[in-house]
């Protein structure tokens, strides 16, 4: 009873401290979310524009044709030029001469940013490098380019997931090579349920890479990309997680 005042004041101080800590943590998270939004290459409205502009052009069936064409090409990494040649060849075969990706500059923006990033990495690894001004020649993973193309794919979310899964199956086919189990059914199946049972599984690494590609092509919401750091004193701090971390967290939640 002699220390009642002290106990009371200590309790108040602790409550205030925890409130302050929580506010600082929330502010840090909100600031990071704003950063992610501000630095995004595309905003959600642009993505919507890209998708609607290609409403009649890039549907799931056309996408399947594109994948078939890339299966013929048989390369896991291609330049953007080669990639677009193949895509346009399929589009023109289906929709006639002159068909092209509408609002393609939005897709270009995402791909060029990736080429810059890869170019910088190459420059950094080859110190006295012939600085990559030949960005056009940089080869990017086919899975990344297809993830970028999926920005323009006009379809339901379920179909889009199918489409991306087929991309991973295709790439896995290249890896396994020898041509055998590559022949994953590339959809246009009237009974998707049957198809799903037939689809082979893909490696976890591929899934992580695909999530990373989706992140790099602005297809994940900012909130989902935020992960907690180990620093929680004096308040919790946050950072942007990569594909591996986001996949791990999702799998933990599923478990």
């Amino acid at each position: 009873l002699d220390n009642l005042g002290k106990i009371f004041l200590t309790t108040i101080a602790l409550v205030l401290l925890s409130l302050l800590r929580s506010t600082k943590g929330n502010n840090a998270r909100a600031a990071l979310r704003d950063d992610i939004e501000a630095s995004a290459l595309l905003d959600p409205l642009e993505i919507e524009d890209l998708r609607f502009a290609n409403e009649n052009l890039l549907t799931k069936s056309v996408w399947d044709e594109i994948l078939k064409e890339f299966r013929e090409v048989g390369r896991e990494r291609v330049t953007y030029g080669t990639f677009m040649n193949v895509v346009l060849r399929v589009l023109r075969r289906i929709h006639g001469e002159g068909a092209t990706i509408q609002c393609g500059h939005l897709m270009d923006r995402v791909v060029i940013a990736e080429m810059d990033r890869v170019g910088r990495e190459i420059d950094a690894s080859e110190k006295d490098g012939e600085s990559c001004d030949a960005t056009k020649e940089i080869e990017l993973p086919l899975s990344f380019l297809l993830a970028a193309l999926s920005l323009a794919l006009y379809s339901t979310v379920a179909d889009r997931i199918d489409a991306l899964y087929n991309v991973m199956v295709l790439i896995q086919g290249f890896n396994n090579d020898a041509g055998e189990s590559t022949t994953a059914p590339l959809s246009i199946d009237p009974e998707p349920e049957t198809l799903r049972k037939e689809l082979p599984s893909v490696s976890l690494v591929q899934v992580e890479q695909m999530i990373q590609h989706l992140q790099n092509t602005c297809q994940l919401v900012p909130d989902a990309q935020i992960v907690e750091t180990n620093a929680n004193v004096p308040y919790q701090t946050y950072r942007v997680g990569d594909g591996t971390e986001l996949t791990k967290r999702a799998r933990e939640a599923m478990a």
Binding site: V157, D162, S201, V202, V207, Q219, L220, A253
Partner: peptide
């Protein structure tokens, strides 16, 4: 390894929330 259903669940989980659509 991951099958299509798992991939679907991962993309639609709150941790990934692709295209803003999550459970």
């Amino acid at each position: 390894s991951v099958v299509l259903e798992d991939f679907y669940a991962i993309l639609k989980s709150r941790s990934v929330c692709a295209w803003g659509e999550c459970y």
